[in-house]
């Protein structure tokens, strides 16, 4: 029963959504599939509560057991509620509530979350430099070709590098754009995209037909 019902639901939902692709939106099947999408949104909304419960429980346990860094866990819990509570309260009560400009949520978002997100993304520059230094080795003929190509593309993508390339014989930037990016790169990207799409379709089919049940902890 614990396996049959979810597999049956997955089969019926999958079948409906696939069938709906072949019917117009204003038909019964089309309408039903749109209804199902709305249900998904509602279910997704309710599961947010699960997330809050999990984050509080994990951090609260760490605080109670005085685990290393428990002070930061207090900050985590405070931050969750500091962002969430004022944003769900009605702005009619106070301009600090809601999510409009001037609200607590907006202030925290603009002045804390946005710079922190940008900072995390910016650290990629450091990590890319370190990963490239460590991993790019001319260990074989293939790796050497990759290394030379990557170097040329990196030079081509910045003005100083392009100046260097211009001093060399032949139109290297045009070659890189036409053959490397528009040729080899595009062919490889297409290959991976087509392969991955087929893999996704095959996996979906296995799920709909109940062959693949590992995502439910079965099989």
């Amino acid at each position: 029963m614990r396996t049959t019902v979810p597999v049956a639901i997955a089969f019926l939902s999958g079948l409906l959504l696939v069938t709906a692709f072949f019917f117009r939106a204003d038909t019964f099947v089309g309408g039903l599939s749109q209804e199902l999408t709305v249900w998904l949104t509602i279910v997704g909304g309710f599961t947010l509560l699960l997330g809050v419960v999990s984050i509080v429980r994990v951090n609260w346990t760490a605080i109670q057991r005085r685990k290393e860094g428990w002070g930061y866990k207090i900050l985590t819990i405070l931050a969750v509620f500091a962002m969430a509570i004022p944003s769900v309260l009605s702005p009619d009560w106070s301009p600090l509530f809601g999510r409009a400009e001037g609200s607590v949520y907006d202030w925290l978002f603009q002045n804390l979350q946005m710079p922190m997100m940008a900072t995390m993304f910016a650290t990629l520059a450091f990590y890319i430099a370190s990963a490239a230094y460590r991993a790019f080795r001319a260990r074989s003929a293939e790796a050497t070709i990759l290394l030379i190509t990557a170097t040329l593309v990196m030079l081509w993508r910045v003005p100083m590098g392009e100046y260097i390339l211009d001093q060399l014989p032949g139109d290297i930037p045009a070659f890189l754009n036409t053959y490397v990016m528009g040729g080899f790169n595009m062919a490889v990207q297409r290959g991976i995209i087509i392969g991955a799409a087929l893999g996704a379709a095959s996996m979906s089919l296995r799920i709909i037909l109940g062959i693949e049940r590992t995502y439910m902890g079965k099989g």
Partner: peptide, 29 residues
């Protein structure tokens, strides 16, 4: 890479019924 991710579950399961799906996918490819 790519489709290997989708094949992983079937591969790790060592079950013939799961590998059938992968072969079908290869045929379409």
């Amino acid at each position: 890479m790519g489709e290997e991710l989708y094949a992983a579950s079937a591969y790790l399961s060592h079950e013939p019924i799961m590998t059938g799906g992968l072969k079908g996918q290869d045929f379409v490819k």
